[in-house]
Simulated assay, not measured.
Amino acid sequence: MTSSAAPTRDAIVATAHESIARGSKSFAAASLLFDRATRERAWLLYAWCRACDDIADGQDHGHTMSVVEDAPQRIAAMATLTDAALDGHVIGLPAFDALRIVAAETSLPARYAHDLIQGFRLDAEEWRPRTEDDLLTYCYHVAGVVGCMMAVIMGVAPDDEAVLDRACDLGLAFQLANIARDIEEDAAAGRCYLPTDWLDELGISPDAVMANRAKLALLARRLTDRAAQFEASARMGTRALSLRSAWAVLAAAEIYGAIGRKVAARGEHAWDARVTTSKWDKLLFIMRARGHARRRAELMESARSAELWRRPGR
């Protein structure tokens, strides 16, 4: 933390834009659909989330830079910087000053930042889920809470728990699809996010999950089916958003939903090559989402959002 004069907001926004363009083409594309103020705040939030992820894993936008035996110390330093930023102090690091700005402009609840940092702690501790509820709790800490923060940035009141639940659902859907896609990649890194209860049902060893792809495909399908349920629930919440914000959210849902659907469709071949969406696919999903956003009240009028899972603090 420094006591130097704060960089200008425009400079921090420009740096945040560079970060999202480099770190996530899907989120960068979806963010362009927001109005300018929301778009810039989304970039600012992304920059802080990305920086925290990189600090925890010793990376630079997903590229390994160092050994991470000191992950607990990294995360403790991250939490200290985050607290200072939330208190309005100039940090001198663009990503944490980005958090300072977006928190001040939106009254972002500090508990959400701390909930996300808890997710990094779980990974640093090489934590593994035993039950589906454990898995969803993890997904909340690394993605669902980001959905809550994004909702606040889009103008949802911090105490509107019903809409925040739907925003959380979208983060859960994203993370479940990612876990299904990345099972082999995670296994190579010594990680497994499949509940041990699920593995035990099929006789799969947590330390050899890739040994039987046919059985593994069944669990991947279970993940993507749950992701689809959370995605459908999340779409209900777009009725509370402006047209442009709803468009962006629904576009992101289409893009990430496609990942889960491709994993499910490939079955035991889901990990032969990394599942991605092409630029053409993204454009198609964005255009489809525009129509859905315009007709969201009509499309969702008769649908009911069942409570699929209760997030921490509710």
Rank of each mutant, 00 (worst) to 15 (best):
T2V: 12
V13L: 09
H17T: 09
S24M: 04
A30T: 10
S31P: 07
R36V: 08
R41N: 13
Y46A: 00
Y46E: 03
D54E: 03
A56N: 05
G58A: 05
Q59C: 11
H61Y: 14
M65P: 04
V67E: 14
P72F: 06
A76I: 11
A79Y: 07
V90I: 12
I91C: 04
F96S: 00
F96V: 09
R100F: 10
I101D: 08
V102I: 12
V102H: 11
A103H: 15
A103R: 01
A104P: 07
A110F: 06
R111S: 14
R111T: 12
H114T: 09
F120A: 05
R121Y: 11
E126K: 05
E126Q: 14
E126T: 12
T131I: 10
E132D: 09
T137Q: 07
H141E: 08
H141W: 08
V146R: 02
C148Q: 13
M150F: 08
M154Y: 05
G155E: 06
G155F: 15
V156T: 14
V156C: 03
D160W: 10
D165E: 14
D165P: 00
R166M: 14
L172Y: 02
L176C: 07
L176F: 03
A180S: 10
A180N: 11
R181L: 05
I183F: 07
R191Q: 09
C192T: 03
C192H: 02
L194R: 01
T196N: 01
L202N: 00
S205Q: 10
S205D: 15
D207E: 15
V209Q: 11
A211V: 13
A211T: 12
R213K: 15
R213N: 08
A214G: 10
A217M: 13
L219N: 01
A220C: 13
R221P: 02
R221N: 12
L223V: 06
L223P: 09
D225H: 05
A228L: 09
S233M: 05
R235N: 00
G237H: 04
R239G: 02
A240R: 06
A240Y: 07
S242T: 14
L243T: 13
W247L: 02
V249D: 07
A253L: 04
E254Y: 03
G257Q: 04
G257C: 07
I259T: 05
I259P: 12
R261V: 07
K262I: 01
V263K: 09
V263S: 08
G267V: 10
E268V: 01
S278V: 08
K279E: 12
D281V: 00
K282L: 05
K282I: 07
L283M: 03
I286A: 04
M287L: 15
R288Y: 09
A289H: 03
A289K: 02
R290P: 05
R290H: 14
R294M: 15
R295L: 14
R304N: 11
W309D: 00
R310K: 13
R311P: 15
R314C: 06
